[in-house]
Simulated assay, not measured.
Amino acid sequence: MERQRANITEPVETFWTPSLVSLTTTETLDARNLNSTIMHSFGIATTRAIQNFFGLDNIQNVRLGLDYGITDRWSVGIGRSSRFNVVDIRTKYALIQQTTDHSKPLSIALKGDLGIVTQENRQPLKDDISTLASAIVSKKFNQTLSLQLSPMYGYYSSVTANKENHLFSVGVGSRINLTERYTLIAEYYPVIGNRNSNTNNAFSLGLNIQTGGHVFQLFFTSTRWHLEQYVIANNRDQFWAGDFRFGFNVNRIFGL
C-alpha cells in the first residue's frame, strides 16, 4: 500500500513579536514561554538636532515588561513605564489562528490592558486608572506581506478640561519581509470620533532584526508612549511634519 503523506496544519507566524512598535499584534507566546521587553523612545530628532544629538540626549519614556504564555493561545503580562510611572497589567487571547492549510484564513485575538499611574500626584487611586480593550484581526497574505486592523477603546477614569474619558481608534499595522532576518514594520493610530485637544494620529515606521532568540526593533515614531491607550490620548506630534523621534524595542524569549 502506498504511504500517504500527512498534512500538518500549523498556525501561521504573521508577525515576529507580540507588538509592532506599540501596537499589539495577534502573535502569541507558546505555553511556558516568557518574553522580556525593553521599549525605549527619545526626543524629537529634528529639534535642535545637533545640540540634542538628534534627540538621543533626551530620553522620553522607557517601558520594561514581561509577558508569559499560560497556554499557546493565552498570555498575561506586566510592565512599567518611566513616564508617570505607569504600571500596566495586560492579557491577550487568540480566538482564531491563521493556519498553513488555509482552513482558517485570519487570526483574531482579544486584548485587555489596565494602566495605573503610580507617580505621586495627590489623587485617589481610582483617578489614576486607564483601561484599553481591543479586537485584533490580522492576515499573512504571502511570504512578504502581513496586515492587521485593531479596533480599540480606551477609557480614563478621571480627566481634566478639554480631555475625553472615552477614546476610539482603529490601529493599522503592517509587516513587509525583506530577508529571513529583516522586515519593515509600520503602524498608524487614527482616532475615531472625539479626541483630546491638540492631539494627532500617531505613526511609526521601523525595522525588525532577527538574531536568534532576540528581535531588535529600530524605529522612527511620532509618539513617546508605549501603551495604546496613551498613544491615542496624548500624541501631540506629527510624523510627516518632521516631529519624529528615534526609538528601539528589544524582545527576548525564554523557554521555562
Score class of each variant (00 low, 15 high):
residue 28 T to L: 07
residue 192 I to F: 10
residue 8 I to V: 15
residue 83 R to V: 01
residue 211 T to P: 03
residue 37 T to P: 04
residue 155 Y to V: 01
residue 217 Q to G: 12
residue 181 R to M: 09
residue 39 M to Q: 14
residue 162 N to C: 00
residue 30 D to F: 10
residue 2 E to I: 11
residue 53 F to I: 14
residue 189 Y to H: 09
residue 36 S to E: 08
residue 38 I to M: 14
residue 158 S to T: 00
residue 186 A to W: 06
residue 111 K to W: 12
residue 137 V to P: 00
residue 235 N to K: 05
residue 11 P to S: 04
residue 13 E to F: 07
residue 49 A to P: 11
residue 214 H to M: 14
residue 185 I to A: 09
residue 253 I to E: 09
residue 45 A to F: 07
residue 125 L to S: 05
residue 169 S to W: 00
residue 57 D to P: 06
residue 249 N to E: 10
residue 98 Q to G: 06
residue 248 F to L: 15
residue 100 T to N: 04
residue 113 D to R: 07
residue 76 V to S: 06
residue 150 S to A: 15
residue 158 S to V: 00
residue 231 V to K: 01
residue 31 A to L: 08
residue 84 F to C: 01
residue 164 E to R: 02
residue 98 Q to A: 07
residue 61 N to V: 01
residue 96 I to K: 07
residue 141 F to C: 02
residue 82 S to E: 12
residue 177 N to L: 03
residue 124 P to S: 04
residue 144 T to R: 13
residue 143 Q to F: 04
residue 161 A to L: 03
residue 136 I to M: 08
residue 21 V to A: 12
residue 60 Q to E: 13
residue 48 R to G: 08
residue 60 Q to S: 11
residue 177 N to I: 04
residue 57 D to L: 06
residue 162 N to A: 03
residue 212 G to S: 11
residue 193 G to A: 03
residue 48 R to K: 14
residue 232 I to E: 03
residue 207 L to C: 11
residue 254 F to N: 14
residue 194 N to W: 00
residue 233 A to S: 15
residue 243 D to I: 00
residue 32 R to K: 14
